[in-house]
């Protein structure tokens, strides 16, 4: 019923190593939004053989953590890693004959439910990287004092290895657990709950919209939301 050992292992290795590059965009380099769940989920799905379901996972997750801002020293939940792992898991399940007839939304929901409990791990690892990076200052200063200027300045780039390593480890852990748990969850899902499960995915965009609206400072923006919603009701 589940994904076989060798293909799961290969998928975990492939997604961890390639997905961690995508995760670098979040803080370490460029920040050109390759790390947004919509993009990362699609990438995770693509690596596991089905980008459409990865895109669905990404779209569901895109707004969910958006109201957590990386302001000052605040470290928000790493939704990039969650999207990569959930997108990869959903796509891997989609490729199995046992789940071929299941709605994509159900698979996306199950993938997200098995991955989201790891949200805290992503913050812990991100925190660890930033603590570890502080040592680079001492290492760089020691080299500068020794007169090795060119090699010293490149210590800055060692931070990228820290971010990459942490992301790859987190992805490996999340994928391993979700590839084990997702088939179990699908097995336990009773038939009468199937119509509910493929619609329950809407909780993620709805919670995301609610989070964004609650974080808006001005009442005028809420008025715009209410106005557009009213127009659409009569549309």
């Amino acid at each position: 019923m589940g994904v076989d050992f060798f293909s799961s292992f290969w998928l975990i290795v492939k997604l961890s190593l390639a997905g961690a590059f995508c995760a670098l965009d979040r803080t370490a380099a460029f920040q050109v939004m390759l790390s947004r769940p919509l993009v990362a989920g699609t990438f995770g799905g693509l690596l596991a053989g089905n980008w459409e379901i990865g895109l669905l996972v990404g779209a569901a997750l895109e707004l969910y953590f958006l109201s957590e801002l990386p302001v000052g020293t605040n470290i928000p939940t790493d939704d990039t890693l969650l999207a990569l792992a959930a997108g990869g898991t959903a796509a891997a399940l989609r490729g199995l004959p046992a789940y071929a007839k299941l709605d994509a939304k159900t698979l996306a929901l199950v993938a997200l439910l098995t991955v989201l409990p790891w949200a805290r791990l992503t913050r812990i690892l991100d925190n660890w990287v930033r603590v570890r990076n502080a040592r680079l200052i001492d290492e760089m200063e020691t080299r500068l004092l020794a007169g090795e200027n060119s090699s010293a300045i490149n210590f800055h780039l060692h931070g990228m290895l820290h971010f990459y390593g942490a992301a790859a480890v987190a992805l490996g852990v999340m994928l391993s657990s979700s590839l084990l748990l997702a088939p179990l969850l699908l097995f336990l899902l009773p038939d009468w709950a199937r119509p509910l499960s493929d619609r329950l995915l809407l909780v993620f965009p709805v919670a995301g919209i609610a989070g964004l609206l609650s974080s808006m400072n001005q009442k005028r923006q809420l008025a715009v939301f209410a106005g557009v919603a009213t127009v659409l009701i009569f549309f």
Partner: peptide, 20 residues
């Protein structure tokens, strides 16, 4: 400067990014 936050840390934050 596109790698500004590569070594972001709690001690001096983006200091190495600036120097780099």
């Amino acid at each position: 400067s596109l790698c500004w936050q590569t070594s972001w840390n709690f001690a001096r934050m983006q200091c190495l990014g600036l120097a780099y």
